[in-house]
């Protein structure tokens, strides 16, 4: 298997927590992993991305070539579109629908939704609303991961188990709420995936 993923968002949204779970699951499966991160100046409220590659055979480049990405997982709709040229013909965009507006010239969100909807494989969900339903607003990233989980090439159960291992030191309650968020995201994503097909 091979899965090339771009995680994107705004500095401070915590895209790396999603990478940590996928990385843990991949490591546990004995897969090869490369994960390029952004540290330093750009983390201060600017656009951030991470290239995450998992494969059953050796991986050379830390960066993914344009036109080769299998999934863009984004915590922010405009940030999903920033990496559009990287998407492969069969690639998916899985994005939070809530804009993060910290610049004066942020585009009209309807335009962003229209551009996203015109792409063949898109899941757009309001992760904040689902996290609220879970009862823990801090689980938004796990909602998004859940929605993206069927297209990552690692079993959804394996990702859910990885959440358990990563959050274990924070206590059983945290594990439960994050796994619940993951399952609700998965369900929301699957509903949209059916529509897309």
């Amino acid at each position: 298997m091979k899965s090339d993923i771009i995680l994107s968002g705004v500095g401070g949204q915590g895209i790396l927590s999603i990478a940590t779970i996928i990385g843990e699951a991949a490591l546990n499966e004995g897969l090869f992993i490369k994960q390029a991160e952004v540290h330093g100046m750009s983390q201060r409220g600017g656009d951030v991305q991470s290239n995450l590659r998992i494969s059953s055979s050796a991986i050379y480049s830390d960066l993914i070539a344009k036109g080769r990405v299998d999934a863009i997982i984004s915590l922010e709709p405009m940030e999903a579109l920033r990496y559009k040229t990287y998407l492969s013909p069969t690639g998916w965009i899985v994005s939070n629908s809530t804009p993060f507006v910290n610049i004066p010239n942020y585009p009209e969100k309807e335009k962003l939704y229209a551009e996203l909807s015109a792409l063949p494989h898109v899941i757009l969900i309001d992760v904040d609303a689902i996290a609220k339903e879970v009862g823990s607003p801090r689980t938004t990233n796990m909602v998004l991961l859940g929605a993206a989980s069927p297209i990552l090439g690692i079993g959804t159960d394996k990702l859910e188990n990885a959440i358990g291992r990563v959050f274990a030191r924070k206590g059983e309650e945290t594990v439960q709420s994050n796994q619940k968020a993951f399952r609700m995201g998965l369900e929301a994503g699957q509903q949209q995936m059916k529509k897309a097909k």
Partner: peptide
């Protein structure tokens, strides 16, 4: 040859870093 399947977005604007 490069492999481009999607044109760059025309809606995306730069998001520079800023003081917190």
């Amino acid at each position: 040859p490069s492999e481009l399947h999607h044109a760059p977005s025309e809606n995306v604007v730069p998001r520079p870093p800023a003081l917190c």
